[in-house]
Nucleic acid binder design. Structure first.
Lengths: 346, 346
DNA sequence: ATTTTTGTTGACAACGTTGTCATGCATTTG
DNA sequence: CAAATGCATGACAACGTTGTCAACAAAAAT
């Protein structure tokens, strides 16, 4: 009982190989009667076309690659499940490819991957999606891709992308804190290597400016998107003479670190300190108190990106269509509250 | 500048196609001189064999499938990275396949997946690895697989597996609580669908028995491996007349729920209540206080399982070799402490 | 009635690789 | 010295599919 081939289907439905091929590829020019007969045979034999043979012959392929370099499991899983959901619907396979975004050989690694595993295209998550020379290398090799990137607007650079307006959302978070009466708001940076990091900072900066709150450099701490940097950064801020009454961590993990530092320092959140994160990871719901944050619809974003990639695969005109922007939404939970001691000025 | 093929290599090194094939597959019976000449040509052309053609012709394949149904991103990511690390070393690709373990059509779905994407074999994570009829279906279809399962010892059922002794580790955790003076220890179950759940319960049960502590059914709450069930279960226990002084959640997520419930109820952990989890997810380090738990070396386990699968692929004798057991290790952090009010008896 | 067009189908080669078997040469054996 | 063996290599077919092009019938245009 070996695997049925197109030959078996052809024999059973009394047509040629080619006609079967036409039916399973939904090509036009087959009589409805014939099509139905073939489809019945396909169903009866439980025939499934062989991907290797298919892609060998047609030089097309039926697998996508998902390229990321992100230590955050929640983010990665959401990414995967968004891409996968589209793959399931369209019959594509998915190869995941975590990698090191700082590797100088990344461009070669990716083109080897695509050629070698015959991938139809790549979904590039940040920060790979932000490396200009990588993008151009891929484009030069005629490798199809779509980018997910952090930007306030469509870069209009001719390559397809889905962009997420982190700046806007960071503005909302900062504004939320300001409206609670906070004026000394600490900001903990994410990594240098992700463009989302400066974007979020810009949002923070802009909100302060709009509310005429002077930017105090001592309240701004560099660091990475990690719990430990959140912890350390918070400690640094706590040691200040004039402590912040609120801290905005560039992502939930940083915020979790701040939360831990606050508790270690005997503070009562949110009364002694308001804390906000970014991302809406499950962690933010499950910490105590639950974190105010910005909800990124990562799965939805990944879905859209994948759809976009597939669309660009179909049509060979290379003008990108359907680039789309997303805006994370403010989610107010229990880690932010009205400032307790209003600034002496009021 | 199209992709070089085996033909180009053959032409360049002045040998036949077949000899090149022999070289790239490391087959014996090629003169060292010839081999070197071919290898030089391969390097010069940057030739990479085409996987589609390879697997089409040889019916072998160069991709594995990872099958799981687990809502826990930390676990899944560790699993993936363990399997991937072996794939990288051996040149295999990886297709991930999250699925619904309760689907009745799962067996068909998996065999279709394997045939369709020409997978060389499957790594089955719990709970798929525990479904007897699924295992037998796959074996009957001659699909290679390896199981990761929760069991105290090698099942010796003729199919390859890596087993994790959850019972033993749960014993250790319970013992740790007992040695801190706790005698009323709540137990929150994980899901019905994972065998790890009863295994962990057995460990709890056995430790109580060994220390002659009567098992109080009111302290045992059913539920799933989720934060919400941890939260609800804890509330239920708190409502008891004779409250537990410690709670053992079947995984870290449950324990996180307990922690949240304790804080919501104004308790001070660990002084008012000791809490232990299971898994050593990053969450357990980052919560406040950090959770006492059992560290599962998931990545290492996945690595070993993959290696085992690959080994069983090489040799066709079907006696499984190298089945291996792992034992999670107790990790004591800050969420467990000596009981404050010793039982009246002492 | 004949030619052209349109629509449906099939024969055949090709994709890049590996398995089978044959070839030729050098070495050992009787 | 002839025959048998071993070793390195190559010719060729095959894997399952799709692209190209030709064949044919029916319908439409002349």
């Amino acid at each position: 009982m070996r695997k049925p081939t197109i030959k078996d289907v052809a024999r059973r439905s009394r047509v040629s190989l080619k006609t079967v091929s036409r039916v399973i590829n939904n090509e036009p020019g087959v009589l409805e009667r014939t099509r139905a007969r073939v489809q019945r045979a396909v169903a009866e034999l439980d025939y499934q076309p062989d991907q290797s043979a298919r892609s060998l012959r047609s030089a097309k392929s039926y697998a996508l690659g998902l390229v990321y370099d992100n230590p955050n499991p929640y983010y990665v899983i959401s990414l995967q499940s968004g891409v996968l959901s589209v793959c399931r619907e369209t019959g594509y396979g998915l190869q995941i490819h975590p990698c090191n975004s700082t590797s100088p050989r990344l461009a070669d690694e990716l083109s080897a991957l695509v050629r070698n595993a015959r991938l139809a295209g790549l979904v590039l998550a940040p920060p790979m999606s932000e490396r200009r020379e990588l993008i151009e290398h891929l484009a030069a090799e005629k490798i199809a891709f779509v980018r997910i990137l952090s930007a306030a607007e469509d870069p209009r650079d001719g390559y397809p992308c889905v962009f997420v307006d982190d700046r806007d959302a960071a503005y909302d978070i900062t504004e939320h804190l300001i409206q609670l009466g906070h004026t000394r708001i600490g900001f903990l940076w994410g990594g240098e290597s992700h463009r989302s990091s400066p974007e979020r900072f810009k949002g923070y900066e802009a909100a302060l400016k709009d509310y005429a709150i002077p930017l105090d450099k001592k309240l701004i701490v560099p660091g990475d998107y990690s719990f430990d940097d959140g912890f350390r950064g918070a400690r640094k801020l706590f040691a200040l003479k004039d402590r912040p009454t609120a801290i905005f961590g560039s992502n939930d993990e940083i915020a979790a670190g701040v939360l831990a530092a606050a508790k270690a320092g005997g503070m009562d959140v949110p009364w002694d300190l308001s804390i906000a994160g970014f991302e809406d990871s499950p962690f933010s719901k499950q910490s105590w108190p639950a974190l105010t944050t910005a909800k990124q619809a990562t799965e939805e974003i990944a879905r859209h990106a994948t759809l976009l990639l597939l669309a660009s695969l179909e049509r060979s005109d290379d003008a990108p269509h359907g680039n789309k922007g997303f805006s994370p939404q403010l989610v107010i939970r229990d880690s932010t509250a009205r400032v307790r001691v209003p600034p002496s000025g009021n």
